[in-house]
Nucleic acid binder design. Structure first.
Lengths: 132, 132
DNA sequence: GTATTTTTGCAACACTGTCGCAAAAAATGA
DNA sequence: TCATTTTTTGCGACAGTGTTGCAAAAATAC
């Protein structure tokens, strides 16, 4: 799906900033923070706009907000609707979707209702592991 | 293990603040943020001390730092060394360890090295679900 | 093309987490 | 127990994240 296509589908105004933000997110498999987006979109839009766009896209389920260690949240396009795992490399700092790695079906105790999940594994990624 | 016992085991000075912080953490199964600890320890110790203590205890593996959605980190005593799942209720906001609920063994792709994990399920807890 | 609605940029703000440094408290050891 | 050394605390300052109100600007609707 294209940036414009996504905005249409969710009935969001097609503003320059939103299209550019979505294009960045669509063009990478690495989760980006607001900061990282800001650097890639230097001068194109304001911090506040990025935050507002990320919030809106999260709420509509287009992107996934990943709570990593530390303070900053990172965001990736949701490619699969099902649960999946994110991996954070402590060496390069990158956060990726681990497509293909599916967590076993988790049974919650009675009475608990699941809405969404956030599985993060922290370690060293394949690229950084080679250079150790 | 008692607060003092833990501090002894890890060769940490037994200061008033640390003992009180540990007692709070030992006395609940709900993950607490620095903020929540501060309110419970009104006037006993400074923000900076709480942060420093939480950091030290995390590094020694006594407590688990949970990155929840939003900005604040929450902390719980590690009861089991193995991976386990945390549950955050969107209604009451409480974060709990789901002891007993074990994630299936997750196989990472070749080359990835796992250090630690952070599994968070977001939803409605049993208590809040009853009152819906 | 104009009117209406939505979004933006800006500035201000609250909050989290960190740090340096002098003062205070805890550990050490006779 | 008391003096010395080591560690920790509290304070203030700070950088960064994320949010918000509001007027101006842009997008949509007609």
């Amino acid at each position: 799906m294209s940036a414009i296509g996504i905005l249409s589908e969710y009935k969001m105004s097609k503003t320059n900033g939103r299209v550019k933000i979505l294009k960045e997110l669509l063009g990478t498999d690495i989760a980006l923070s607001e900061r990282e987006l800001q650097m890639r979109l230097e001068g194109i839009c304001d911090r506040a706009t990025i935050y507002r766009t990320l919030k809106a896209l999260s709420q509509k389920g287009v992107i996934h907000k990943i709570a990593t260690e530390g303070t900053v949240a990172k965001f990736v396009i949701k490619k699969t609707p099902e649960d999946h795992i994110h991996f954070k490399c402590t060496d390069c700092g990158k956060v990726r979707c681990m497509t293909g790695v599916v967590p076993g079906n988790i049974e919650l105790p009675k009475g608990f209702i699941k809405k969404e999940s956030n599985y993060l594994i922290i370690g060293i990624c394949d690229v950084c592991a080679k250079n150790l």
